[in-house]
Design a protein around this nucleic acid. Structure first.
Lengths: 163, 163
DNA sequence: CGCTTGCTTAGAGTGCACTCAAGGTCAGTA
DNA sequence: TACTGACCTTGAGTGCACTCTAAGCAAGCG
């Protein structure tokens, strides 16, 4: 039960939203089955059930600058946009692949700073991609060992049952 | 990210050594370059440089029951055997693939308890193998996103330079 | 009106996996 | 003999990523 246990599947549900990414059209239908956007965006509890992250974590992400510019209702409650969900999906992927929060915060800063940071963003992601590739190799290496050992135990058990 | 960042490359150095699984002959020349086994095993600092783990960590592994039965010199210093290095290599792999230390300790207990724990050992490793497989899938999912974004930044930069 | 539910904040607490500190023993060398 | 350096122990400290607490505000309902 390390960091990965809560909401792995839920986060991948969000990742579908991230494919859409940036330009979200704000002009959806207004009355029927009022989509969250008609009320100004998703509430925090909607985002919780959508992503599997806790409300605490969502607020904490905002506090540390990882989830900036979430808009508010007239009573100060958070209203998440589709773009916010897309960003959360990316953050979820980076998190699940072991990027430190500090690096994600740095990336978020770069995004806020505009297009002149493309080079650094590319560099940051490229570095992370290398880490991910290496980690995949380690995992596959381990998979081979696990296969071997599991087969070994299975063999030994079959042999002992036959006696 | 948790757990993965320190000493990743160094541990893979161990796995190379364990791949060899050198059956060291104890009857080597006594004076010249005495092999560690001739002195009763590897010292902790030799294991440190071999594995990339810190001496602190090696002692801590022993304290928590993850690295049992390390023999000692007549002055009480640790002497690691080849088998210990092999075990350490496995532990390194499990650790790099995110198995909680508690589970590794449990596995170590089962190994100590003997052959009647084969079923539970197999179960434990099988469960971990599933986690590893799922994690690989997540990593590859993320890799696709990273490729897409990196290419996007590269394109944008090429375009802006052409202007 | 009171109650519940759901949200707000800043700051403190938790769990994991180390990582270090303090004080000590022992072998080898000047 | 004095010193150096590698090793020993127990217990405390660190960094990360959450996770929870406490106190309070606002809306909806019987």
């Amino acid at each position: 039960m390390t960091t990965v246990h809560t909401a792995a599947s839920a986060v991948s549900a969000v990742s579908a939203a991230s494919a859409a990414e940036e330009k979200v059209d704000t002009c959806a239908s207004e009355a029927a089955h009022p989509p969250p956007v008609a009320r100004g965006g998703y509430t925090i509890s909607e985002v919780v059930s959508h992503t599997g992250l806790s409300a605490h974590t969502l607020r904490w992400y905002e506090r540390i600058g990882l989830m900036p510019n979430v808009s508010r209702s007239h009573t100060g409650q958070r209203r998440y946009s589709e773009a916010d969900l897309g960003w959360l999906s990316l953050v979820g992927k980076l998190r699940l692949t072991g990027m430190p929060v500090a690096d994600m915060v740095r990336y978020a800063e770069l995004v806020r700073e505009g297009e002149h940071t493309f080079a650094e963003r590319q560099h940051l992601l490229t570095r992370h991609r290398e880490n991910v590739r290496q980690h995949i190799a380690e995992l596959q290496d381990t998979l081979a060992v696990l296969d071997f050992k599991i087969e070994h135990y299975a063999d030994a058990r079959r042999a002992s049952e036959r006696v």
